[in-house]
């Protein structure tokens, strides 16, 4: 008995597999077409609409949007109160990102280099757990923790450390009647809420640094701090940048936290929400929404110039 060299196709699946084998590009096209369409039409489309809106202006007299090209709306961004909002938001996002990076690094480093087995699982659980509960619940909980008569104030009183809180609250720009009404409180909550988004990419980056790299550095005579600066940090930088993109852009766009904790001063997200939602000033809202995009582009190009992506 002899067997054929080519087996007969048993069904559609066999024929399809054959077609895809002969034309590998076809499968790829089929797979990426839907997401590309989604990205192209929905995302880029709405981005274009946003950009377009920002070049319109609102009629001062009637409050109607004039659909004519103008840069007037962008000029409005430079009015003192609007510039305040942009600066306030960028300063906050920068501070939050730096604090997240400093806090996340040791945690990520421990998880990437030392945690094994159950400890690793515990780490993931610990980092992810806060992400599973409602964002709003967490923010409200922080409001209670930071309140004048909240847990933190109570603990400070019990340990005679109220002067620390009072000290923070007397710093210019951080004033408030309690941490919960101070911009410092807003900062604390931002840091807490976004911290996991910094830890996870950082940990992934650190995990990819082979142990031998650190040993090589020590072997060649580097102290631990030299190893940190010249080897660990540059190699972990893509992770730090990835994390900072999260924390930075999430802070730039958030409009919930400043409503609940802080002194009610506006941030970009909240301003966009209010301008668009209640004032009907969509052009200015769109112009405000363009600001974070520009800031992120500047940020990324600075990061690239600083060599953040060299180790990729």
């Amino acid at each position: 008995m002899t067997y054929p060299a080519i087996l007969p196709a048993k069904g559609l699946a066999d024929r399809l597999t054959g077609t895809f084998w002969r034309r590998p590009g076809l499968l790829l096209l089929l797979l990426i077409a839907p997401p590309l369409l989604w990205l192209g039409v929905v995302y880029l489309g709405s981005l274009a609409a946003l950009l377009l809106q920002s070049f319109y202006s609102i009629d001062e007299f009637s409050g109607v949007v004039k659909e004519e090209f103008t840069l007037k709306t962008y000029a409005e961004l430079f009015r003192a109160q609007n510039l305040d909002i942009i600066i306030r938001t960028v300063v906050m996002a920068t501070a939050v990102t730096l604090a997240c990076a400093v806090l996340a690094f040791p945690i990520a480093y421990y998880a990437a280099r030392y945690a094994k087995g159950p400890w690793k699982a515990a780490f993931y659980l610990g980092v992810m757990l806060p992400l599973w509960s409602s964002y709003l619940v967490k923010v409200y909980a922080w409001k209670l923790i930071l309140a004048k008569e909240g847990i933190l104030g109570w603990a400070a009183e019990g340990t005679h450390t109220s002067w620390i809180i009072d000290g923070i609250l007397s710093v210019p720009f951080l004033e408030g009647s309690s941490l919960s009404t101070s911009p410092f409180g807003t900062f604390l909550v931002f840091v807490y809420i976004w911290l996991p988004y910094m830890i996870l990419p950082m940990q992934a980056a650190l995990e990819r640094v082979p142990n031998s790299m650190l040993e090589a550095s020590a072997d060649l005579g580097a102290t631990q701090s030299q190893t940190f600066r010249t080897v660990i940090l540059p190699l972990a930088l893509p992770g730090v940048i990835a994390g900072s993109i999260f924390t930075f852009s999430l802070t730039l766009g958030d409009y919930i936290i400043p409503q609940i904790v802080g002194d009610s001063s506006r941030f970009i997200g909240l301003t966009v929400y209010q301008l668009q939602g209640t004032a009907g000033n969509t052009p200015l809202a769109a112009a405000f929404a363009v600001v974070p995009i520009l800031i992120m582009l500047v940020y990324l190009s600075l990061a690239k110039r600083a060599g953040a992506f060299d180790a990729l």
Binding site: G63, N82, S264, A279, N281
Partner: peptide
Amino acid sequence: YRWVSDYIGVIG
């Protein structure tokens, strides 16, 4: 609409 933008300024 000016009430909106100016009140933002006041709070800020």
